[in-house]
Design a protein around this nucleic acid. Structure first.
Lengths: 266, 266
DNA sequence: TACATGCGTCTCTTGTAAGAGACAATTGCT
DNA sequence: AGCAATTGTCTCTTACAAGAGACGCATGTA
């Protein structure tokens, strides 16, 4: 079930690249696919299962996994024939964070924001054409809205998505959005034109609020972080219960915009 | 004749991987070297410089870097022709952390420890045969001892190194330590036998203290974290001024051991 | 002006890595 | 027991990626 869904997403994502028949695949590509697959499934995976999930030959998969384990990019997980990410990826990731002012400061702001407001707060970015939660800090509510770092969601489902695409030409937006992305979890369909209108509106107002999109119980408030005038590099967002009062909502939006502006390069 | 044979054997033995002349190199290996090189230099690097630093052909380097950038493992840095780690590595790294109890809890303990004691505290692990600072939290001293996450240091220079090797056979230890590793930054040389004695002693006492090894001003206190009885998975350590009193030192060691034990799998 | 150095792209060749498939050893099921 | 499925290793072939090197375009500096 979980596997099936992850696999389907994987295939959908990879299909738009050209496919010159089913010929040989470069080793590096296989490796990239392995990493993506592990990331999509968020758990250690057996080598055989990996080969099956990637439609890769077993022999090749064994070889590559062995090399990656030796290199420390992957590690054999507890029971012995499963692999997951390795320490070296963690070290590289920390190095990235250290070298990236926006991310470092953004994490702090997000943590502070969720501490002050008690709501779940997130830092989001565009990552290979997808909306990605780069850092999140859970709120203090008894039933808190959870969302794991690294989670990727279709852009049209989110408030942040509307801000992240602000300033892009229509053609680029269209290229990023697939048909499936426009269908919400509950089955409703967003019209592409409506979505693009939303983007323009979000750009003009400098923030975005969506209600009941990914689920029926939450509202999503987002504000843009600029890396250059007009260029949205990231968004900060708050996920609050859908019945949050109009007044509190606009207070939160104001706070959010202030913090996001603080992160922006002036 | 004899010389020739000896030389051949030496070459075969010294490069513990076989080396069939300087022929073509696999793409994946080039990539691993690129990542390691970036990690070692901790900064964005131009592609030409990268090729030079790795002794890799320029054309190949350009190709690989382009692919890695497209994949999101690398990113072009600000000025345009330099590359550094990419967001995807950060996401993978966070996924590793989430899936790794020891690391997650270890980071918290380290942060707490440095907050409580005011001293610089670190979580260390063995990473491909080298001592690696996996997480560190700076102390509150005016001139604090800094040490970046991901830094790799020869094992004999550190207290943690002595604990991390506890329980390994002498041959395995010898294989991990090169001649250079035994020479301290100030030029002094550690005898391998002394080092191995230290390891046995550290194992017996359950902690290790070294003074003035990496520099003349600091003492290093370390305690082991076990993943299984007898198996040292990591160490927690404190880096304190070398003139710290005997009494405070032993207080800190006691605290350190308690916290490290808490992290160990019982 | 000439000359040197570095960057980014392109073409062509050949050594070799990706892949097919056979194999033995486990494991689980009936 | 017998049968089916899975795991890890190994061998061999050939499609193709790694690499050499030329090219044009920027720089900088004598």
């Amino acid at each position: 079930m979980q596997d099936g869904k992850a696999l389907a997403e994987w295939q959908a994502a990879s299909s738009d690249e050209e496919r010159p028949a089913n010929s040989r695949e470069k080793g590096l590509n296989r490796v990239l696919h392995i990493l993506d697959f592990l990331h999509a499934n968020q758990r250690a995976i057996g080598i055989g299962e990996l080969a099956k999930g990637l439609n890769a030959p077993r022999s090749t998969t064994y070889t590559l996994v062995r090399e990656l384990v030796e290199a420390g990019l992957l590690e054999m997980a507890g029971d012995g024939n499963r692999v997951y990410f390795g320490k070296k990826l963690y070290l590289y990731g920390m190095a990235y964070m250290r070298g990236n002012d926006l991310l470092r400061r953004g994490r702090q702001e997000v943590d502070a924001l969720s501490r002050e407001t008690g709501e779940t707060s997130e830092l989001c970015m565009l990552q290979s054409g997808r909306y990605t939660i780069v850092h999140s800090s859970p709120g203090t509510r008894p039933f808190r809205i959870s969302s794991a770092t690294g989670l990727q969601i279709p852009l049209p489902w989110t408030a942040s998505g509307r801000l992240l695409l602000a300033g892009l030409e229509r053609s680029r937006i269209e290229a990023m959005i697939s048909e499936d992305d426009l269908i919400l979890p509950d089955g409703r369909k967003i019209e592409l034109d409506d979505f693009i209108d939303d983007i323009a509106k979000a750009r003009a107002t400098g923030y975005c609020v969506t209600s009941g999109l990914v689920d029926a119980y939450t509202k999503c408030l987002a504000a843009p972080v600029f890396s250059a005038p007009g260029k949205v590099e990231a968004t900060m967002c708050l996920v609050v219960p859908i019945d949050t009062s109009q007044e509190r909502t606009s207070d939160l939006v104001a706070l959010l915009r202030e913090r996001a502006a603080r992160l922006s390069i002036s």
